[in-house]
Design a protein around this nucleic acid. Structure first.
Length: 153
DNA sequence: TTTATGATTGTTCCC
DNA sequence: GGGAACAATCATAAA
C-alpha cells in the first residue's frame, strides 16, 4: 500500500524500471480526484499508528490474527495482473499495472464487477467469522505469542 | 537478508 | 460523515 513510514517523507528514489518519467509528468498535470486524495493522504501526518511503519511488520507480528480480506477491486487486480503480464511480459512494475487496472475498473459496468463483489462478500463474511473466533480466543486468554515478544504497541 | 516504496480501490473503524 | 489505515502484488533499492 501506500502508507509511508511516519518519517519517510524523504522518498527514496524510484527504481529505474518503475520510475516512468513521462507518465509521471502527465500525472502531475492531470491529477484525478483519487490521486489528489492520495497525495493529500501521503502528506498528512499519520494520526493513528504514530511509531512504526504500517507495512508488513504488523502483519508478521500478528500472525494469528485474521487479515483483512481483499476488496472486489483487489480480486480484479489479481486477474488483471495475470492478463496484463501475459500481454506485456516486459512490464513487471505493479505501479504501472495498478494504475492501468484502476482506469479499467472505472470503465467496467456493474455486471462485470459483480462477480468480484460476490467473491469479496464471501471472503468478508469468512473474515468476520474468523475475527469472532479470534476475539473469543483472546478473551479466553489464549494470547497470540507473537504479540508478546514485540514492542509493537 | 530484511524491509520500504509505489500504484490502484473498497471496506472498516475511529474521531 | 470524513478521513486514515489496510488489504495484494512484486521489482528494486536501501539499510
Amino acid at each position: 500500500m501506500t502508507k509511508k513510514a511516519p518519517n519517510s517523507g524523504l522518498s527514496r528514489p524510484l527504481s529505474p524500471s518503475c520510475s516512468g518519467g513521462s507518465t509521471r509528468n502527465v500525472e502531475l498535470a492531470v491529477k484525478s480526484s483519487e490521486s489528489v486524495r492520495r497525495s493529500k493522504r501521503l502528506r498528512l501526518k499519520p494520526l493513528r499508528k504514530p511509531s512504526i511503519s504500517q507495512k508488513k511488520k504488523p502483519v508478521k507480528l500478528r500472525s494469528k490474527m485474521p487479515k483483512k480480506p481483499p476488496t472486489a477491486f483487489f480480486y480484479f487486480l489479481e486477474d488483471f495482473r495475470k492478463q496484463y503480464q501475459e500481454q506485456n511480459p516486459e512490464v513487471k512494475c505493479m505501479r504501472e499495472i495498478g494504475k492501468t487496472c484502476g482506469e479499467k475498473w472505472k470503465t467496467m459496468t456493474y455486471e462485470e464487477k459483480v462477480k468480484y463483489y460476490d467473491i469479496a462478500t464471501v471472503k468478508r463474511e469468512e473474515f468476520h467469522r474468523e475475527m469472532t473466533e479470534y476475539n473469543k480466543r483472546m478473551e479466553l486468554g489464549e494470547h497470540d505469542e507473537s504479540e508478546t515478544d514485540s514492542d509493537y504497541s
